[in-house]
Design a protein around this nucleic acid. Structure first.
Lengths: 160, 160
DNA sequence: GAAACTCGGACCTCTTATGTCCGAGAACTA
DNA sequence: TAGTTCTCGGACATAAGAGGTCCGAGTTTC
């Protein structure tokens, strides 16, 4: 099981979007991270479909965060880009074979899926506990405040 | 991100293997769960490579749990079947683009990967807290004790 | 009103998960 | 002790999804 690489890109983009209120084009975000512009567009579309970012069309268009960074969690981004479905899917194996449990008796999930989903819930909870604002704060602390300020200036100026 | 379907099969097989000390052939496990025998064999090989089960060759051969069910965790099975690597892989995006962080300054993981790995650790911890023995106990409680006893008898007899 | 720039979805490629097969090897039987 | 039968083990096809690219529809700006 490997998470889509687009999740990493999307998270970094969300952090970058916290430094400005002006729309940022996908091409700019791609250049900033040195990744394929065409492919990054796909991830941004996923974020837009999920309502996390808002797209502005036209000449000076781009993407803007729809909510405050404090109210966007990592879980939101992961589910938007990587799909909302559960990672573990129960195929009701207990209802098959010579010792099949009758469907009537299957009112509750089987013990295996219960345990797997409980672990998944713990994962979700940990992701939901961290927000984009937390990440931005960590970046400030790790790379120094000048990093995001520099990016902010670069985004404002037309310099490529 | 979707977990390999083989994880479900492997977990059910491990539970079944708790009811007997005699080797159980892959074909028997496949028939019991009504799944492809050839493909299930692949999952069992993964479990064997990871040292969770031991293969016995020859006429009355099959698979046996190597450890007590109490000391085999769900994490062990998941990592064996689905791969031991982390689900989130950091491609060091911060070292790319016009604002690249110099490699010297990257002694610690970037904030994004730190947060993702922390969540993954919570998931692992939850998986490691549940053992195959716990699952077997849950099955007993859910489907009644006669379920596993019936399977035990079926495995012992040559009846297919 | 025209032009330039933006997003959005349709399209193609390639890795990986899924599924299958037959040969090597060990235990049982005679 | 030799033959037979059953087992696992890895090599071989196939299908689905991730990764990557492209051009058209729509909007803002001049």
């Amino acid at each position: 099981m490997k998470m889509s690489g687009g999740v990493e890109w999307a998270l970094h983009c969300c952090v970058v979007l916290t430094v400005t209120n002006a729309p940022v084009p996908a091409a700019k975000l791609a250049e900033l991270h040195d990744v394929s512009s065409s492919y990054l567009a796909k991830q941004l579309q996923s974020l837009a479909r999920a309502g996390l970012i808002h797209s502005v069309q036209g000449k000076s268009g781009g993407y803007v965060l729809t909510r405050a960074p404090e109210s966007i969690t990592l879980l939101d981004v992961v589910r938007a880009v990587d799909g909302p479905g559960p990672t573990f899917v129960c195929t009701e194996i207990r209802q098959r074979g010579p010792f099949a449990t009758p469907a009537d008796a299957c009112t509750t999930p089987c013990p295996v899926s219960r345990a797997m989903w409980a672990a998944e819930a713990a994962w979700h909870q940990a992701l939901a506990a961290v927000t984009i604002a937390d990440l931005a704060r960590d970046v400030d602390a790790t790379s120094g405040p000048e990093a995001l300020v520099g990016i902010q200036a670069w985004l404002s100026s037309g310099t490529g």
